[in-house]
């Protein structure tokens, strides 16, 4: 079984949503800015709860923001 890799389009979505800052996104979804930075850099895989909150904030489905690659 290979390593799971999850890509995300958070950075792109942020800029499309009135150039939202990392801090604003963090406050809106209830996490720290460090977590958003780690997510954008692909260094952290979020919990399902956080992933849903992010997707919902951008008005998208989970799979439109997060992409699973094996």
């Amino acid at each position: 079984m290979g390593t799971d890799v999850i890509f995300n389009k958070i950075r792109k979505q942020r800029f499309e949503k009135n150039e939202m800052t990392q801090q604003e996104l963090a406050d809106a979804v209830g996490c720290t800015r460090q977590t958003i930075i780690a997510l954008e850099a692909g260094k952290y895989t979020p919990s399902l709860g956080l992933a849903f909150r992010i997707a919902r904030l951008f008005g998208k489905n989970l799979e439109e923001i997060f992409e699973y690659a094996e």
Binding site: Q34, I37, K43
Partner: peptide, 10 residues
Amino acid sequence: SEEITNPMAE
């Protein structure tokens, strides 16, 4: 500009 490298967590 926004940081790409992660600053220290509290």
